[in-house]
Amino acid sequence: MLSALSYILLTIIIYQISAWCQRKTSAIWLNPMLLTISALIPIMLWQNISFQYYFAQTKELSNLLEPAVVALGYPLYQHLKTIKYHWRLFLSVLTLGVAVVVVISFTLSMALINIPEVAIALSYKSVTTPIGIALTDASGGNSAITAFAIILAGLFGALLGPSWLNYIGVRSAKAQGLAIGAASHALGTSTISKISYEHGAYGSLALIVSAMITAIIGPLLVDNFVLFYTTPL
C-alpha cells in the first residue's frame, strides 16, 4: 500500500515539475507527459524496477482513464449545440478524414514495419490519449506505442500544421481549426487557440467529434485489416 502510494506520488510530482517547466518556457515540445516518461525511465532502469511492477503499483492512476473518457462527453455536449447547423459538413469531412488517416497509417505501417500490434497503435494516434489507448487495447495493439505516437502526432500538427495550411492556401480559422483539431487533438488545439478564439473553438470541436468517429469506424476498419493481414492465404 505504502509502495503503491509512493509510486503514484512520484509520478504526480515529476509530472507537476514538468508541467511547471512547460508553463515557464511555453515551449510546445516540452510536453509534460513526454518529460515525465523520460524522467521515470532512467529512474526505473537505475533502480531495476520492471515495467510490470511499476504498472501494477500505479494501477489506480491508469484506472482513472475510464472516467476521464466519460468526462469528455461534456465538451462534446457543449459542441453539439454549435454544430447543429453544419453537422452534415462536419460529419462528412471528419468521417472521410478519419477513414483516410486510419487506412494510410495501417497500410503504411504494415508496409514499413509489418507488425500488426504497431500498425493498430499507429492507426489510433490522431485521437485524444484516453480514447486512443482504450481503442488500441480493444483491438489488441501496443498501447505504449499509441501513447507516444499520439504525442508525436500532436507535436507535428501543432508545430507544422498552421504554416503548412497557410502555404497550401487554407487560411480560414474554421478550416485550420478543424484540420489541426482532427489530426493533433488537444496538443494541436491548445497551440492554435493562441492564434484566435475561433481556431480554438473549431479545434476542440474537431478533436472531440473525430475521436467519436474514430471510436465508431476505427475498429471496423482496423479489425478487418488485421484479419486481412494475419490470415494466411
Binding site: T11, I12, Y15, P32, M33, L34, T36, I37, L40, I41, M44, F51, Y54, F55, T58, K59, L61, S62, L64, L65, A68, T129, P130, I133, S143, A144, T146, A147, F148
Partner: peptide, 9 residues
C-alpha cells in the same frame, strides 16, 4: 498524468 504509466510501457 493518468497516461504516464501506459507510456512508460
Amino acid at each position: 498524468v493518468c497516461f504516464v504509466p501506459a507510456g512508460v510501457g
